[in-house]
Amino acid sequence: MKTEGLARQQVLREMMDLAMGRANDAVKLVYLDQDGLGQIDGLDLRCLTEFKRSSNGAVEVKLTDRVAVLEKLLEQQKAEEDGLGAFLEAMDRPAAPEGMCSQR
Rank of each mutant, 00 (worst) to 15 (best):
M1R: 14
M1G: 15
M1C: 12
G5K: 12
A7Q: 07
A7I: 09
R8D: 01
Q10K: 11
Q10P: 00
V11H: 11
V11S: 06
L12M: 08
R13H: 02
E14A: 06
M15C: 09
M15W: 04
D17K: 14
A19H: 08
A19W: 04
A19K: 10
M20G: 08
G21M: 05
A23G: 06
A23K: 10
A23V: 08
A23I: 08
N24G: 00
D25G: 11
A26E: 06
V27H: 14
K28Q: 05
L29A: 14
L29V: 14
L29Y: 15
V30R: 13
Y31C: 08
L32S: 05
D33I: 12
D33S: 15
Q34R: 11
Q34W: 05
Q34I: 04
D35A: 14
L37E: 06
L37N: 05
Q39S: 13
Q39K: 14
I40Q: 03
D41H: 05
D41L: 06
G42R: 11
G42E: 05
G42P: 02
G42Y: 05
L43R: 12
L43W: 10
D44I: 04
C47P: 10
L48S: 04
E50K: 14
F51D: 00
K52E: 05
K52W: 01
S54N: 04
S55F: 04
S55E: 08
G57T: 07
A58H: 11
A58P: 02
V59H: 07
E60V: 10
V61W: 02
V61G: 09
V61D: 03
K62N: 03
D65R: 06
D65H: 06
A68R: 14
L70Q: 15
L70A: 11
L70P: 09
E71L: 12
L73N: 00
L73C: 02
L73S: 01
L74K: 15
L74R: 15
L74N: 15
Q76R: 13
Q76G: 07
Q76V: 10
Q76T: 10
Q77K: 12
K78S: 04
E80Q: 15
E81R: 15
E81I: 12
G83Y: 00
G83R: 03
L84C: 09
L84Q: 13
L84H: 10
L84A: 11
G85N: 12
A86H: 14
L88Y: 02
E89W: 01
M91A: 03
D92H: 13
D92K: 12
D92M: 08
D92I: 06
R93W: 00
A95G: 00
A95V: 04
A96D: 00
P97R: 08
P97C: 04
E98T: 00
E98G: 00
M100C: 01
M100K: 02
S102P: 03
S102D: 00
Q103V: 00
Q103C: 00
R104V: 03
R104I: 01
